[in-house]
C-alpha cells in the first residue's frame, strides 16, 4: 500500500529471507557452558540452575541469556535495569526506546513497563497478558507475569513467564520464553525453579 517493503509478494519474499538470515546468525555469537549447579551472579541475584545451560556471551547489555536448544526454542534471560534505562534494547534504535523506567515507580508499574519494553525489544505484534500476580524473588516482593505473544515475522505463538523485582536501585528480571507448542510447557518448570531458588 504505502511502502512496497510491505506490499505484496516482494515483502513476503524479503521477510522470509530475513527470517532465515536471523535464525542462521547464532553461529556468529560466542557461547559458554553453565554447568548444572554452578552459581551465576547477575546484578544482586545469585542463580543456580539445576541443569546445564548454554550461555551466550556478550549478547545482552545488562544480564545473561541462556538456552538449551536455541533461542527460538527456549530462552531464559536475566536482566538488571536501572532508572532511565529501557528494560529491553530497542529494535530500531533511531526511533527511540520503549519501557524506560521512570525515576519513581512502584511494583504495579512493572507490568505496563515490561509490556512496553518487551514489545519494543522483540517487535511482537501480539502481546496478551494472561495473568499478573504478586510473587517473591530472592525473598523480596515481586511481580510474576504470564503472557503470550507472536512476532510479525512468523505465525508461531509463543508464551512467556517473567518475574520482576526491585532490588536495590534496579529492576531484576528473570524471563523465560518459548514456543507455546511443547517447548514452553517442557521448560517452564525449571524456569520457575530457578526463579524460586534465586537469592541475594
Amino acid at each position: 500500500m504505502r511502502r512496497v517493503r510491505h506490499c505484496g509478494l516482494l515483502w513476503i519474499v524479503r521477510t522470509l529471507a530475513l527470517a532465515g538470515l536471523v535464525t542462521a546468525s547464532p553461529a556468529l555469537a560466542g557461547w559458554t557452558l553453565v554447568p548444572a549447579g554452578q552459581t551465576v551472579v547477575v546484578g544482586q541475584l545469585k542463580l543456580t540452575p539445576p541443569t546445564a545451560w548454554n550461555a551466550q556471551t556478550g549478547s545482552t547489555a545488562r544480564g545473561v541469556a541462556w538456552t538449551h536448544d536455541g533461542f527460538e526454542l527456549n530462552l531464559l534471560e536475566v536482566t538488571v535495569t536501572r532508572s532511565g534505562e529501557p528494560l529491553y534494547r530497542e529494535r530500531h534504535r533511531r526511533r527511540g526506546v520503549g519501557g524506560v523506567l521512570p525515576p519513581q515507580f512502584a511494583l504495579i508499574d512493572l507490568v505496563d513497563l515490561f509490556e512496553s519494553g518487551f514489545r519494543a525489544g522483540s517487535g511482537a505484534t501480539v502481546f496478551v497478558i494472561e495473568q499478573a500476580s504478586p510473587a517473591k524473588l530472592a525473598g523480596l516482593p515481586a511481580v510474576e507475569i504470564r503472557y503470550r505473544f507472536s512476532l510479525s515475522e512468523d505465525a508461531l505463538p509463543s508464551r512467556g513467564l517473567v518475574r520482576l523485582a526491585i532490588i536495590g536501585d534496579a529492576v531484576h528480571a528473570i524471563n523465560f520464553t518459548a514456543p507455546a507448542l511443547h517447548y514452553f510447557d517442557a521448560g517452564q518448570e525449571e524456569a520457575r525453579r530457578i526463579m524460586d531458588e534465586a537469592r541475594i
Binding site: 500500500m1 504505502r2 511502502r3 510491505h6 506490499c7 505484496g8 509478494l9 515483502w11 513476503i12 505484534t125 501480539v126 510479525s152
Partner: peptide, 13 residues
C-alpha cells in the same frame, strides 16, 4: 486482518 501497528495493506496475486 492482522495485528500490526503499521499503516499498510496488501493483496497477493
Amino acid at each position: 486482518i492482522v495485528a500490526d501497528s503499521r499503516f499498510n495493506a496488501f493483496m497477493a496475486p
